[in-house]
Design a protein around this nucleic acid. Structure first.
Lengths: 201, 201
DNA sequence: ATAATTTCTTAACCTAGGTTAAGTGCTCTA
DNA sequence: TAGAGCACTTAACCTAGGTTAAGAAATTAT
């Protein structure tokens, strides 16, 4: 595996991601990178478990992660997928410093940029522009959660599935369909039934 | 109606709200207030309609507003309530500058602090600390939307109602129950049935 | 390759919550 | 103070999606 390429890829990618919303000088870029750590994880690795306090935020350079919770009936619910160029974490636990409800798991071997809460806060002090970046990130995420919330209330599972397909076409091939079912808000059995119904058309 | 008291109340309130997360000098406070406008609205006033571009964000000093959308079947879905000390708006439309899907309506006569997008952006330039404030606001809002999303997938309408009651005890007395039904994600008829069932216990 | 484990499918049956409709209050407004 | 809307309730009936269970297919590990 061409490690150097990967590392290079990562670094570009997270800086590019930031550059979408704020302009950092090259010193600031270097400072930012010095406060991050990049790691490889194999599939099935659990980066965070429910009950733990989330001390890090993750940026995915390659591979796929998911966040999910497990309710009293031992049923998993996928909150989020994150593949190349996406951020993921347990925002509740991260900002409140209380034990969270989310698990974060690697679904497909991944290279992940890790920022600890400590470093994150130092970065806010040293590069105030990052407040703006993470504000915009949170606002965009909020908008997509609002949309998903309304979709769960006002459209059918079939329509949600179609939306998912057009929004995240690559994910369908890459993650087990039971997780997509969960993200959409139906059981794997119903998802399977629904898929068969759609194929007949 | 003691207009001066009201105005004074508003101003305190929004500055107090900001003071929860960032410290402004009194010059900055004055600058902030100079970029806002406070207005009274009667119940049933529509501040924003679906299809329009949201050019303002609202902070509620008194009264109650709600945001909702209307789907193809002419059914309303409440996204949000906002009473004293809450912010409300159509974040999607506001940040994308595209026509939104939300209506914002006054449910109970209200005094509202209005910030236009233009002024908001000037404020970001003149008081960069506000980036931090609105970052934190967006992050908190994100967390509560994530929780609501998971609740809609993993707990029953009855449990959601109980959560609503303990989270927003004052709203139950003040808002027509059909809107609470909608917020929770059930029809008014089912809500009524559920309430009767709960009273028997 | 082969066993072991996941994942996916199918099908019969079940239920939370939706729909329709009719009736009973409210509460504004005239 | 009437009466025109709203807001709420009740009840019969309906359906999207859940549950259970068992087998088939695909992965993964040995």
């Amino acid at each position: 595996m061409p490690k150097l390429n990967c590392i290079f890829g990562v670094m570009q990618s997270i800086l590019e991601n930031i550059a979408k919303h704020v302009v950092l000088t090259s010193e600031e870029q270097a400072l930012f990178l010095s406060k991050t750590e990049t790691k490889q994880f194999k599939a099935k690795t659990i980066l965070l478990s429910a009950g733990e306090i989330a001390t890090c935020t993750y940026f995915v350079n390659s591979g796929i992660l998911r966040s999910f919770n497990i309710n009293d009936n031992i049923i998993e619910h996928v909150l989020h997928f994150a593949c190349e160029g996406w951020w993921i974490g347990d925002m509740y636990s991260y900002i409140s410093r209380k034990p969270g409800n989310l698990f974060i798991e690697v679904l497909e071997e991944a290279e992940v940029v890790i920022i600890t809460k400590e470093n994150h806060q130092k970065l806010y002090q040293e590069i105030p522009k990052l407040e703006r970046f993470f504000r915009i990130l949170a606002e965009n995420s909020l908008v997509s959660h609002q949309e998903r919330l309304m979709d769960n209330l006002s459209i059918t599972a079939e329509e949600r599935f179609e939306k998912f397909c057009s929004k995240y076409p690559t994910l369908i091939q890459r993650v087990p369909q039971k997780h997509i079912a969960s993200f959409i808000g139906v059981t794997p059995e119903f998802f399977s039934k629904m898929k068969a119904r759609l194929l007949k058309k």
